[in-house]
Simulated assay, not measured.
Amino acid sequence: MGARMAGGQVRMQRIDARARFLPVGDTAFAVEFGTRIDPAINALVHRTAALLAAAPPEGLVETVPSFRSLLVHYDPRRTSAQALQMFIGALELEDAAGDAPARVWRIPVLYGGEAGPDLAEVAAATGLSEPEVIALHAGTLYRVYVQGFLPGFAYLGDLPEALDLPRRTTPRVRVPPGSVAIAQRMSGIYPVESPGGWHLLGNTPLRFFDPLWSPPTLFAPGDGVRFVPVEADEHAATREAVARGSYRVETEGTPA
């Protein structure tokens, strides 16, 4: 990667010097920046997507960011993979150490009980007490890497290693909306009722997707997320405020 020069300046480096291009069918290819889930790699993915969104080249249809690569869809009647790869490869990026989140959402969570039916099981599997599991989960600042699986479902990393567990052996047929869950080194929030195989630690009454919103999801890639433990009465009051449309999600203590 590019080196930091004297005076604190950062050397820019072409994308083709730090990424490789992989074919994906005959109308798409991937720009791969690494082989692991890493905040710095993910930052490069989203910086590249932002550059292409700001000045899209001829024939570009859309880009789809993932943890470590950017999928590029193009119109073969207007361009070619080779031409587009040359264009993208010549773009320059600064080094990334994992950009600090521009905003950090504070998400109220009622842990345990009916809201988090797997909390005791997670505690037993990790050798921690239930309060220790809650403290570890809520004490982490998470990064929104990507969104997928369901509209508004964000993959949040990086979960503390002490809570690293595989998915449940038997997935649930129905997971309630707002369920806060973990699996491997990720946490997530189910935005709607759906099947799911992650471990459920708690529940939040907030909404994370609405097709009438602009944009339609609460989170965006690169955002930060912090979980805030609440008691049952505050959880219920927040649910009522959300239903009335009067609740404003906080970002580090400031209304969003």
Rank of each mutant, 00 (worst) to 15 (best):
T170R: 15
A237Y: 02
L159Q: 10
Q82L: 11
V175K: 11
E252L: 00
F208W: 06
D26H: 11
Y247Q: 00
L218M: 15
I15L: 05
R207L: 12
T217C: 09
V228M: 00
A54Q: 11
Q147S: 10
P131W: 03
V45D: 12
L156A: 01
G197L: 15
A55K: 13
A243F: 01
P131I: 06
Y190F: 12
P171W: 01
L52C: 06
A96C: 09
M5W: 02
A237V: 02
R207S: 13
Y155L: 13
R103M: 00
R47Q: 15
V144Y: 09
S66I: 04
L159H: 04
D210S: 15
F209L: 02
E94Q: 08
A17F: 03
R168T: 04
R78V: 14
A120G: 12
S129V: 08
E32M: 10
P191T: 10
A243S: 12
R239H: 14
L150H: 12
D233T: 15
G202S: 03
V249C: 01
I37E: 06
S246R: 09
E62N: 13
G112F: 01
A256Q: 00
A19D: 05
T79D: 03
V24I: 08
P215H: 09
A102K: 08
W105L: 00
T251N: 00
G224Q: 04
E32Q: 13
T217M: 11
Y74C: 04
T238E: 00
G197R: 13
A102S: 14
H235W: 15
Y155F: 14
H199D: 10
R36I: 06
L93E: 07
L93S: 05
T63Y: 04
G188H: 03
P176H: 03
R244N: 11
A241I: 02
E161M: 08
I189L: 12
A138V: 07
A54K: 07
T27F: 09
F153P: 05
Y74A: 01
P191V: 08
P65R: 02
R207P: 13
R78D: 04
R78Y: 01
A19G: 02
R103T: 00
R168F: 06
V249A: 01
L201W: 10
V72S: 15
D95M: 13
P117Q: 12
R36S: 14
P56A: 05
L128K: 12
L150W: 06
L200T: 10
D223T: 04
T79P: 03
A237K: 03
W198Y: 15
